[in-house]
Design a protein around this nucleic acid. Structure first.
Lengths: 343, 343
DNA sequence: CTGAAAGCGCTTACAG
DNA sequence: CTGAAAGCGCTTACAG
């Protein structure tokens, strides 16, 4: 390890090339209004190469008033669904030569406060909000500070800037698959009542059931959360009913892991006695017992699209986009015709 | 949405309070060499509050030459082991009023190049390297640019700045648990041969076996990777041996998910015919079939400690630390005495 | 065709 | 006790 090297600046390059700093700057930014002799330009570029010069991003941002940085707030790094969103957003940010700063908010409000505070200090050009941490007052605060924001994978009353998946269609696809197998008593392990994604999946379930003339009684829906523990509890409740469902639409793959655990514990054979299908696909799904049938959703695309929209839309223009396409039922064997169905 | 508001600057606050910008700055930084009348200070603080002033982080960093930002490079956001490290690092960064910028490198080298480039532009005060992407030449490059770095969860030849878990002891703890149950043929589903964590866990397995007088033949170790697919393939290979092991130490919990899947597929009952224990604990483990016995490791603490060390150690001083303690065997039922053992 | 100058918003050594 | 000034490393409108 050498001691901290003094960074190379524009002035170092200019001195070496025998020109002014401003010329170097304009050469590097391809300023079209710069008429420079090819020979001089070569000298400048050579100096840049020889000194391995990189412009200081902080100085540039201070001057240009663009941080070339986007923020992304998620609930929890441990949630693989958000991992995919991050990956998409990161790729899109890199494609625009920007940096992505991802922060998690977790349970405590203090971490959210820290992130919003930091963000208020001119570090980001815009903020993607992909968690349950945000309320209208945070959005007002961002507006006051002039920081463009975009809700990702969720909406909020009166907030007209969001990008979401087609949750309703994802749920509908799963339900129609089950109906196609002959199921009629299809229950729904739903997400939290106050989660926008959960409400849209509930609606997808209900709509697809009704379209097939099947009932959706209140007892067929149990609210849960997007964790294995939550899925396990909800499944236990549904399987305790007098009239058991023959199939389950689980609103989230993490919850479905809990569903499979509960079935194993209660000795309910999947898919022979109970079919299970979940929203969102992960590599993990193929290795569960049994391998889990899922609806694949374009989570990475959602993250990508969020950055694209944030970067290209005026801060005061509404954004209301559903990322469609790429929904696909991945049949892995946790779904089958109900017992007693004609073969 | 209002139009982008003009940010409040130091000058705005100073004007309102009727003092010079420098006074405001020194009041806010609690400059001990500033003798100011209590009344003036109050006026300054009132103006700060009324205007809701936040110093521009870019301008401050440019002046102080400290970005108040640390970088963290990981292989992949989808890997839950790294999720825990990120969470620890994020908490430690927040505790120091710093920002954490986490980037993933993935398979492609282009993303690594982008991140190293960005980091060379004065955006971070130091870099945590927690992936398999780093080679000595990247470290040399960072040294040349004067950016302090620290390897996390891995070491590299001749790189004397690292912080790791006690992987050897973690593996040893698992093996001793199996030996305590009466197992003698304990095979090892290892990590990649070039992964430092994998080598340390191999050594832990071997050392604990030898300490008990048990053999560690070459066939008892199969190299794999830290994914379900890798664990599945390695397990298949081990179970195909003429003399099957009665227990498996799997080097990583993600690989162990593959192990359980292969056992289910081959009809090998866990733990009756085969005990399985894995390194690293996740909430998920409790919901696998069967629930997985693991060794809990202080991954969050590793992330925290990495930031602390990076922030508090001179850039040219060596860091060689093993984060010890908190190792714990979490017995969930995937381990049991071997068949035919005395009850 | 290229250079000098101003200024982004801070901090800090110095002046009075 | 407080203010004026310099300067961090850039970019860009302007001068010549």
């Amino acid at each position: 390890m050498s001691a901290r090297a003094k960074a190379v600046t524009l002035l170092d390059v200019a001195t070496r090339a025998g020109v002014d700093r401003s010329v170097v700057s304009r050469v590097l930014s391809d300023d079209p209004r710069l008429n420079i002799r090819a020979e001089t330009r070569e000298r400048v570029l050579a100096a840049v190469r020889e000194l391995d010069y990189r412009p200081n991003a902080l100085a540039r941002s201070l001057r240009t008033r663009r941080a070339d940085t986007y923020g992304l707030l998620i609930p929890d790094f441990g949630n693989p669904v958000y991992a995919s969103i991050i990956q998409g957003a990161e790729a899109a940010a890199i494609a625009r030569d920007c940096v992505l700063m991802t922060g998690s908010v977790g349970a405590g409000a203090t971490q959210a406060a820290h992130h919003l505070d930091v963000i208020g200090r001119g570090r980001v050009d815009g903020l993607l909000l992909a968690g349950d941490h945000t309320d209208s007052s945070s959005l007002d605060e961002l507006d006051r500070r002039g920081i463009p924001w975009l809700l990702v994978n969720r909406r909020l009353p009166r907030a007209r800037r969001w990008v979401v998946l087609d949750d309703e269609e994802a749920a509908g696809l799963a339900v129609r698959h089950l109906i196609g197998l002959g199921h009629e008593r299809i229950a729904h392990v739903a997400g939290p009542r106050d989660a926008d994604t959960a409400r849209r999946r509930m609606r997808g379930w209900r709509t697809a059931m009704r379209a097939a003339g099947l009932p959706t009684p209140a007892e067929a829906l149990v609210v849960s959360d997007y964790t294995p523990a939550g899925g396990a509890a909800a499944t236990r409740e549904l399987l305790g009913r007098a009239e058991r469902p023959t199939a389950l639409l689980v609103a989230n793959i993490a919850a479905a892991i809990g569903t499979l655990a509960t079935c194993a514990e209660l000795g309910v054979a999947v898919p022979r006695e109970l079919s299970v299908v979940a929203v969102h696909d992960l590599a993990l799904a193929a290795f569960l017992q049994p391998a889990l049938t899922t609806v694949r959703t374009p989570l990475e695309r959602l993250g990508e699209r969020a950055i694209e929209l944030l970067a290209s839309t005026a801060p005061d223009a509404p954004i209301e986009e559903v990322v469609t396409g790429s929904l696909e039922l991945v049949d892995r064997g946790s779904t089958a015709p109900p017992r007693g169905a004609a073969a």
